[in-house]
């Protein structure tokens, strides 16, 4: 199927700013689904609130645009109720890890077969550029005019510690890698987390003097490196890209089938 067959063309043009990285993620996601050849009716996309969450409405899947931070809780209901569906949850950094932090760690702990894509642009875009839990110490935001003194989460470490069985990171610059990782994440039987570093030239870039979208993408290329590279040894400041965790643990819905079997046998 062509890419355009996965989108709801009547709802375009999209509402994202020029240069926004979320369109690149949308593209990568569609290509991943296309390569996997999954039936559109077998996919439920559940999103929360924010710029990232609007991705759901543009896609021709079953789409559920929910509440700020709560997408994974809604998604858990969908998945446990109908485990045969592929459930994909695109989230923003504030959505996933501030207001939705509790749902995030518990979905990871449960190891329910859902694919969470954290589109990390380090800012609350929809409300006009406030700092998020991923903005980082020393950055500027509309609610951190004298620089942000909040430390940030590391999505990969957080997801790994919380029990996610597939954890990866990519960027809007590394589109091929992003698509491959999303493919693998969807196929993974368990809770998978993919952090995609995405640029927000309108708010994060402008305020932090990172230039336009192209400058920001080039910057992502510069500050990241494949996992375990020589460059990382020489420069520990570099952010690693790739698959960090890939392990097998009982998946929640399959485990619940065991509960049903035990209940029916009276054990």
């Amino acid at each position: 199927m062509a890419v355009k067959d996965y989108i709801r063309e009547r709802f375009f043009p999209h509402m994202w700013c020029a240069g926004c990285g979320h369109g690149i993620v949308l593209n990568g996601l569609i290509r991943a689904v296309e390569k996997l050849g999954i039936d559109k009716s077998a996919i439920v996309m559940v999103s929360g609130i924010g710029c990232s969450s609007r991705i759901a409405g543009y896609l021709d899947f079953h789409t559920l645009h929910t509440l700020h931070g709560r997408a994974l809780a809604f998604a858990t209901g969908v998945k446990l109720s109908k485990p045969e569906l592929n459930v994909i949850v695109p989230m923003g950094d504030g959505d996933a890890l501030a207001i939705g932090g509790n749902h995030f760690i518990h979905a990871a702990r449960r190891n329910i077969n859902i694919t969470a894509i954290v589109m990390n642009n380090r800012i609350y875009g929809m409300t006009g550029g406030q700092c998020s839990p991923l903005s980082g110490y020393g950055t500027l935001a509309s609610t951190a005019p004298y620089t942000n003194v909040d430390q940030s989460f590391d999505v990969v470490q957080l997801a790994s510690a919380a029990g996610a069985t597939f954890v990866a990171r990519s960027t809007g610059f590394h589109v091929q890698q992003m698509t491959e990782i999303i493919q693998e994440a969807i196929l993974h039987n368990g809770f998978s987390v993919v952090e995609v570093m995405s640029q927000c030239p309108t708010y994060f870039g402008r305020r932090n003097r990172q230039g336009d979208a192209v400058d920001m993408l080039k910057y992502m290329q510069k500050i990241t490196t494949p996992i375990g590279s020589k460059a990382k040894e020489q420069n520990p400041e570099l952010i690693e890209r790739g698959v960090f965790v890939r392990k097998e643990l009982p998946e929640y819905c399959s485990a619940y089938d065991t509960v049903i079997r035990r209940a029916k046998e009276g054990k």
Partner: peptide
């Protein structure tokens, strides 16, 4: 909060 969200998700599956 999550309990309420989860039942809404499940309801949509029928």
């Amino acid at each position: 909060i999550a309990s309420m969200c989860a039942i809404i998700g499940a309801s949509l599956t029928g």
